[in-house]
Structure formats: C-alpha cells, structure tokens
C-alpha cells in the first residue's frame, strides 16, 4: 500500500500513475474534496507551446503528452489556442512568434474562420493547432471518481499519518525555496459571446487568457504576483482583467462576473516542478502555473521513483525534474 498526502492535482495524478502500474494507493487530505487545492482557480490550458514563450524548455517537453493523458480521464477540448494582439501591440505578437514553436500565422480572414465572434477585430494572430484545454473542476472530480472506481481510497478531512510515501501538499508543504505566486482570476457568464477555444490577448502590461467553459461561461486570468497574500482580488487586477476581456470583445461588457478567485501557486526559484527528498520524505511540488500541463509527466516520474525506492529502500538522493 502506497500512501500519499494531499488530494490535489499532484497527489491524485500520481495515484493514477501508481494504479496503472498495479499498486494499491491511499490518499489523505486534511480538507474537504477540492477545498485545499489551488487547481480550482486554474485555467486548465494544455498549452505547452504557448507557455514556451517564457517557460523553460522542460515545460514544453514535459507538457506535450498532457492532452492525451487527460483525455483518458476527463473531456478535453482539442481546438488549439488562438493568440492575438491589438494593432499597436503587434510587436508583442512578433516576439511571441519568435519565442514559440508549433504555430502558424493567421490573417484576419483565418481568425474569422476559426472564431467567427472575433471576425474583423484582429488583423493577425498565431494559431497553435495542437493545444487543448479542460475544465479544471470537472477534471479533478473525474480523476477522483476514476481513482475511487479503481479501488483507491481517498480519505478527505483526514490528516495524513506521520509516515507517508509521497507528500503532495503544495503550498502547505514546508519546503526550502518553495514560494507562493499569487494568481487572480474571474469567471464570466456571457451568453452573447461565442468563443470556442482558448484565446490569448497579448499586451505588454496586462496579458490575458480566456478559456471557454461551455454554455457562455468563460474563465479569464490571470495575474502573477510575488506574494503570499490570499486576500480577495484587488480592484486593479479585476479592472485589468475585465478591461482586457472587453478589448477582446465588446460584448463582454454585458457579461455577468459570476466568480472571482485567488490562489497561490507553489513554485521553486526556477518555476519548475521538483521531486525531492526533504526531512526523510519524498515530495512532488512546485507545479507553479503549469499544474494540469505538467502533472501527468511529473506524476509518472514520481510513480517510477516511488516504485524504485520501495524496491531499494535505502536509495535516497535529491534530483530535479
């Protein structure tokens, strides 16, 4: 029996990898289902190539298989990512194109074909056909249900025992160098807007991504602030996000803001996830803003690591993803 502390993204994904390798798993979580996990505030973008704009090459490499992995667990929308910028920020588009791969330039007419709602609004953009997205809350529910069906015990509202095999408690883990990066998001209900894929609006100060959740619901995000504060979204951040959404499409003016949220992304200094030993326990942590994108690859690594350590009990060394 392998014991995991933390029923967030990292913990549940690793449990699934272990089950598929034929192991029995119990997962402990001190809170109610979904309560302690920051993944509920995630965009759910499976966009390794777009992330490559500012992330390390590892993120692109490890994230490539994420869409296929998640498709076995939960509905995944594979319609790609459309990246646009207003005419005066065209240099942002040039820069984005230079820093990323697996995209093609699209004209105003092609943008109109892809997303008729955006017809005539942008003269050029980039299309990342291979990218996808999912609904984070649905995905977490589906993953937990799948695990339970396969016999994994997920003990909510139960603090983990003193000795577990893997700790995936995100920001609650006391790990050296782990820091919180605050993110703020909002959910809009905009029945008048019909956008079917993830859209990124580039802007030098207020970049925005919009992820459709279906039935006129859109998630918009997200700020990146070096802070551990969990206070509600600031007026500045909210007005930046809403202003950017309005720039994307004026019909968002009529949208209802049905939710705002704040989460703290756990991150190491290089913003890459790590599997490491600390105080005699194995940890998977630091998924930063790439939870859904990197959880599959990191969970597979963590599972392999756990299995090899169980077979060689004394083999302990610190490695990085």
């Amino acid at each position: 029996m392998i014991r995991i502390a933390g029923a967030g993204l990292a913990g549940l994904a690793t449990a699934w990898e272990l089950v598929q390798r034929g192991h029995e798993v119990t997962v402990y979580d001190a809170g109610a289902p979904g309560a302690g996990s920051v993944s509920r505030y995630a965009g759910g973008m499976l966009a390794p190539f777009c992330e490559g704009e500012s992330a390390e090459e590892d993120v692109v490499r490890l994230g490539r298989q994420a869409a296929a992995w998640w498709a076995e667990v939960t509905p995944v929308t594979r319609r790609g990512t459309l990246v646009v910028a207003s005419p005066r920020d065209r240099s942002e588009l040039t820069r984005f194109a230079r820093r990323t791969t697996e995209h093609r330039h699209v004209s105003s007419a092609e943008i109109a074909d892809l997303e008729p709602a955006l017809a005539g609004r942008f003269s050029q953009g980039l299309f990342f056909a291979e990218e996808a997205h999912l609904d984070p809350r649905r995905a977490m529910r589906d993953l937990a249900a799948l695990l339970q069906k396969k016999g994994v015990e997920i003990q909510y509202n139960t603090p983990a025992p003193a000795e577990v095999d893997l700790i995936c408690t995100g920001g609650a883990a006391q790990l050296p160098e782990l820091r919180p990066v605050r993110g703020e998001m909002a959910i809009l209900q905009a029945p008048d807007v019909d956008i079917t894929r993830t859209v990124r609006l580039l802007h030098p100060r207020v970049p925005l991504y919009l992820v459709p959740r279906g039935e006129g619901v859109y998630m918009i995000g997200a700020t990146m602030i070096e802070s551990g504060s969990t206070r509600p979204i600031t007026l500045r951040s909210l007005s930046d996000l809403l202003g950017a959404a309005y720039t994307l499409h004026p019909a968002f003016a009529e949208a209802s803001v049905v939710e705002t949220g704040v989460g703290l992304r756990p991150a190491f200094p290089d913003n890459l996830p790590r599997i490491l030993h600390h105080d005699g326990s194995l940890h998977l942590n630091g998924l930063y803003r790439h939870g859904f994108l990197l959880a599959p690859a990191m969970a597979a690594q963590a599972a392999d690591r756990l299995i090899s350590e169980i077979s060689h009990e004394d083999h302990r060394e610190l490695t990085t993803a």
């Binding site: 919180p180 605050r182 802070s227």
Partner: peptide, 15 residues
C-alpha cells in the same frame, strides 16, 4: 506596490 500587500512578498524579497 502589489507585492507589499499584507507584507506577503517576503519569499521573493528574501531572494
């Protein structure tokens, strides 16, 4: 400005 909110930017500042 923003990092200062509640003095919560400590992790970044210590870096």
């Amino acid at each position: 400005r923003r990092e200062a909110a509640d003095g919560a930017g400590q992790a970044f500042w210590s870096l």
